[in-house]
Amino acid sequence: MSEKVRILIAKPGLDGHDRGAKYIARALKDEGYEVIYTGLRQTPDSIVATAIQEDVQFIGLSLLSGAHKELFPKIVDKLKEQEASDIHVFGGGVIPDRDIPFLLEHGVEAVFTPGTPISDVVKFIESVK
């Protein structure tokens, strides 16, 4: 039997480039994870549907546009609606420090701001998987 941690890296919102998301997808692959990457401008509904079909343990949300306070909790809620709260949500991108407590209160389990070493992300994944 061979289990693998599967992670969905998704970009909600309207911002137009995904260099950061692609970078994290590749970095997690190099750490031995299976990463599903779905591209730009995903809606909360498509992210949740994708996470369920792909049976991932984690959703990593990447956002630069500033809509994280609205979109991240929405995704957490939709997971709950679908009885899929066992899927862990973490976030990254341009997120001001002052917003982090709000996100953590709303079901996002970890937030990684630019420059976070990948080893921190791995530590998080390994601690909750």
Partner: peptide
């Protein structure tokens, strides 16, 4: 990857217009 055992699964990126269709199931 033969080195890390990890993978980036990117095929469904081109099929995401069907992500929320309950009669389409996509698995990487």
């Amino acid at each position: 990857s033969p080195f890390s055992g990890g993978a980036v699964l990117g095929d469904r990126l081109r099929m995401q217009s069907h992500a929320t269709d309950p009669n389409v199931f996509i698995r990487s």
